[in-house]
Computed example of a mutant assay.
Amino acid sequence: MAISDTVRHRGAADRLRDLLPKLVLSPSVALVGIFVYGFILFTLYLSFTDSRILPSFGWVGWQNYGFLFRIRAWDTALTNLVIFGTLYIVICCLLGLLLAIFLDQRIRAEGFIRTIYLYPMALSFIVTGVAWKWFLDPGIGVEAVVRGWGFESFTFDWIKDSDMAIYTIVIAAVWQTSGFVMAMFLAGLRGIDSEMLRAAEIDGASTMALYRRIVIPQLRPAFMSAFVVLAHMAIKSYDLVIALTNGGPGTATEVPATFMYSYTFTRNQMGIGASSAVIMMLTIAAIIVPYLWSELREKK
């Protein structure tokens, strides 16, 4: 009987030990289910209704989506997203790779330099946007400083130019995120087998050939991870745009996130705002889902 009671007690203790993590995590899981996935479904529903200043239950089907793609501001937002997203991802990847290669040379004060490169990522996009707004303002920023040095003809007023303002968003975003991408590539570089590189050097491979044929191909997972993270940040970019240009001049730097906020909370067109949010969500899903599927397939 004593042995049977001991076995029963151990079985109960094992079940409790297995159940305890689930009990601890269940409130967080429930909150995520309600306030993330629940609101995603609610937004999807609102995109098919005639909701304006408040949610309503008048079903209009695909009408909001049809109207959305006839709005000129939405076309501008999509165009700006393509320009911003493409330049942002490409420049961040190239600059991050160059910085990672530089730090991979085992230089002195590597830890200090790496911290400097990573520091901007610790700032919020609001802080970055405000700082770069001052820096790029013709009255107090670069233009004013250079003219104060005696170069009266110097002009750098991109932030006021409707054709160039979108590129100021790229500059600020690249400054903040390139250090993070550098850290991802540096981790990938440190994971490459040094014996393989040494053997290639003995065989007479040049430095350029070494990076082109061995190093960069082995950084494919880092490139994929960087692409997914940067694309996600570009699509949902809102705070940086608001802090830096507030979507202006006019609608020159309007992006889908600012368009969604404007139509939902300023213009009181909640149905159209919800439909734009759904388009953004589907775009992010179109990037993340294939990436996750590829990663899971490789692990199997």
Rank of each mutant, 00 (worst) to 15 (best):
I242S: 09
L136T: 11
S294I: 00
D5H: 14
E152F: 08
G204L: 10
Y65S: 07
S262F: 00
G150E: 10
D161F: 02
N246E: 06
S162C: 00
I91K: 09
V130M: 12
L54N: 04
T76E: 01
I159M: 07
V127K: 02
R198V: 14
Y45N: 11
L97S: 06
P120T: 00
S124T: 15
F57M: 11
R114Q: 12
S28M: 15
L282Y: 04
A30L: 15
E254V: 09
S262G: 06
G271F: 05
G38F: 14
K22A: 09
S153Q: 13
A231K: 03
L219Q: 06
T155E: 15
R70F: 10
R212A: 11
D5S: 13
R72K: 12
G66D: 09
S26M: 14
F223S: 04
F185A: 03
G148T: 01
V24K: 08
A2E: 10
I34R: 08
L219S: 04
A100Q: 03
V278E: 00
M280F: 11
R297G: 13
L186H: 09
E295M: 12
V60D: 03
I171D: 01
D104F: 09
E195M: 06
G139C: 09
G273P: 03
F35C: 03
L99F: 15
S237L: 12
I116M: 14
M233T: 03
M184A: 09
M208W: 15
A144M: 07
P290H: 04
S4P: 00
R17Q: 08
V174C: 11
I279T: 12
I3E: 08
R213Y: 13
Q176T: 13
S47T: 09
K236S: 11
G96K: 14
A144I: 09
T43P: 05
A73S: 14
Y211H: 14
L282G: 03
R17P: 01
V215Q: 05
I235P: 06
A243W: 10
L99W: 10
A165Y: 11
S225R: 02
G61L: 07
G61Q: 04
T245G: 05
M184E: 06
P221M: 07
V60Y: 04
R267A: 08
F39W: 13
A187K: 10
V146W: 01
S26D: 05
